[in-house]
Design a protein around this nucleic acid. Sequence first.
DNA 1: AGGCTGCTGACAGAAACTGACAGCAGAAAT
DNA 2: ATTTCTGCTGTCAGTTTCTGTCAGCAGCCT
Lengths: 230, 230
Amino acid sequence: MSRSERLIDLLQVLRRHRRPVSGRRLAEETGVSLRTLYRDIASLQAQGAEIEGEAGVGYVLKPGFLLPPMMFSEEEIEALVLGSRWVAKRGDKRLAAAAADALAKIGSVLPADLKEKLDGSTLLVGPRQPIADRIDLGLLRKAIRSEHKLELCYLDNDGRDSRRTVWPFALGFFEEARVLAAWCELRQDFRHFRTDRITQADMLDNRYPRQRQALLKDWRATRGVDPVGV
Amino acid sequence: MSRSERLIDLLQVLRRHRRPVSGRRLAEETGVSLRTLYRDIASLQAQGAEIEGEAGVGYVLKPGFLLPPMMFSEEEIEALVLGSRWVAKRGDKRLAAAAADALAKIGSVLPADLKEKLDGSTLLVGPRQPIADRIDLGLLRKAIRSEHKLELCYLDNDGRDSRRTVWPFALGFFEEARVLAAWCELRQDFRHFRTDRITQADMLDNRYPRQRQALLKDWRATRGVDPVGV
DNA sequence: AGGCTGCTGACAGAAACTGACAGCAGAAAT
DNA sequence: ATTTCTGCTGTCAGTTTCTGTCAGCAGCCT
């Protein structure tokens, strides 16, 4: 196994453990001496991996995605740039910021002439009245990712306020609105919630008892001629 | 200079030359022996770089973007995925395909569990009637990128067909339509063309005499309360 | 036909990597 | 406070990998 393969392997081992892992154990798992393990950690950190080591505790890798070096064609980059610009303009605050960060991150590692090409792409996204959410959609995404229940305060179609516990599994992005798709414990059925009508959202400690993908599949199967039709 | 830095350097040297470059010259520019140069080329090819060598001619690098290894946070990846999905659903055929390719490319180099996370992201893009273009928008993008003139056949607001030569500099993506922004030689002014009303487009051999970014800047300055407002 | 050029193999010297040992510093447990 | 666990760094010899030189074959172009 080459050095670079071993480094990738090390990252994967780190990712598998959520708790801090000692260098000694990492060295065993990657089949390398402790001294070399420390050197490998240093290499990864130098490459930008956010690994934190604490004496007496061990190593923790900040969750994220490490992409190996890869080539994109001009059209693929244009597509990524356009897509990110759309998210930056139309996504909620946090996601928009993340899209901008991602583009900036890509730009920062490109040689000057390519960066210019990246920034100078003239595929533009049309403007639109921003959607006024009252809550942080980052929380919804976090609940979806981790399959946790949410307690929502929702302003009904008729203007009535209701409070319910739901199992969120998807977030749909439309032109006029963003819609949370979830299983509603109250109604015992799938329900859609416009994010601009959610007045409060709290993530509960317990997870819901089904897999997000399974919920999504059921939802797709049952919604038939649903006007939302994502 | 480390080996990996040298490889990146080599790619940049290759990118600077559009004509085929001999290995000998590349070896000189990267400060390495010819034999090692051949080995470096082989390394890059093994990593996915599309370099073609022909005996008696030299090396050519297919134009594209090489991204070095980099980390993205979960939110950044979610933003990129959502953006790419939007392009894949709402972009024109070629760009949509490029977005899908880019996502697939990213997925293919990720370890299985991360790939699952990538594909399983439940941020969804709402559907919409696809826009029926009569021409290949790839041609428009290519003309924009290379700052070449276009000859358009355009179906007027009143249903009249016209033919004109324009200097295309931007492509705007709206919900209902895509709009080409260009300087119109006929009217001596900026004009917008809905892509679904362009019945024919041919790229001329000669480039237009201004820089795309400069045109964009002027256009932004002059359009004022323009209803399009990108 | 001749000159370039890509491409591969072999091998010795150079460079980088690795493991073992030693030692220091900080965090947690006792 | 002491002990234990752990991160982290330096040194150095042995190992592995990389590099340059030399040689040779095959394809492209003039």
